[in-house]
């Protein structure tokens, strides 16, 4: 959730809380007045001074004070809450590992290498010509999810084989190997479509990692990556 959205939610919650608090203070004030009445006859020093110098009640000032105190309390609590929420976000050492570099010079056609990126397996597959052909042959209207799901391209791009494969290297396919259904790891080179098969609930992906059958709603996502050299990829 973006920070601005979170801030808005927090704001709404605290505005509601604030009005509850001020209501509570108001009723406490009523209670106080009834107690104060009971003491009216007492000749206290303060009362004597007040009677001479002051008008009995100054509701505007009192209201201002209570509202100011309430507002400060709400702002203080809200501000103090943030560090306790934000501490649950990834820490600096986790964020520092956000990118990894992989050498793929040893990955021959028909082979794949799986590495960990942000705690998830990312598969880099050097596809055979047959696999590429199969991928290209699929008609867009046969696809369950028509979007490319490629973080390196247009968000609305079609799920063509070219839009899924690496730019300029149609044999290289880089994907996060996490089933879009409920997060299991699909098996390589298996399933009816020669691509990936998820053993948990039977989702089937084709040779371009597109969902073809089963409960998964989306194609396997393609993380941001770039070729630093012909044989080196930086993911993230």
């Amino acid at each position: 959730m973006p920070a601005s959205e979170a801030a808005q939610v927090v704001e709404t919650i605290f505005f509601n809380l604030a009005s509850t608090v001020t209501d509570g203070v108001a009723s406490a004030r009523m209670l106080k007045r009834s107690y104060a009445d009971r003491w009216r006859p007492l000749p206290t020093r303060k009362e004597a001074i007040l009677a001479e110098s002051d008008t009995p009640a100054e509701p505007t000032r009192r209201d201002f004070l209570l509202h100011a105190a309430g507002a400060f309390g709400v702002v203080g609590v809200a501000a103090a809450a943030w560090p306790f929420i934000d501490q649950m976000n990834p820490d600096a050492s986790t964020r520092a590992l956000a990118s990894v570099e992989v050498d793929i010079s040893g990955v021959k056609p028909g082979q794949a290498v799986t590495i960990m990126w942000r705690g998830k397996p990312v598969v880099i597959r050097n596809r055979t010509e047959k696999e590429v052909e199969e991928g290209k042959a699929v008609k867009l209207e046969d696809l369950k999810d028509p979007l490319a799901r490629n973080a390196n391209g247009d968000a609305n791009a079609d799920a063509t084989d070219a839009n899924r494969a690496a730019a300029g290297k149609e044999n290289i396919l880089v994907m996060t190997k996490v089933c879009t259904h409920l997060g299991c790891i699909p098996l390589d080179e298996s399933g009816e479509f020669g691509g990936w098969f998820c053993p948990c609930h039977g989702s089937q992906y084709d040779t371009a990692g597109r969902i073809r059958k089963g409960p998964a709603p989306e194609n396997l996502p393609i993380p941001p990556y770039a070729f630093i050299s012909d044989s080196k990829i930086r993911i993230g």
Binding site: K32, L42, E47, R62, L65, A69, F72, A79
Partner: peptide
């Protein structure tokens, strides 16, 4: 800074609340 201003406001709140009571 926030706490000092807040304490100041609460001081006046307290004074207001207790003004009728010795």
């Amino acid at each position: 800074l926030f706490l000092i201003v807040f304490a100041g406001i609460l001081y006046f709140v307290k004074r207001q609340v207790w003004r009728d009571v010795a």
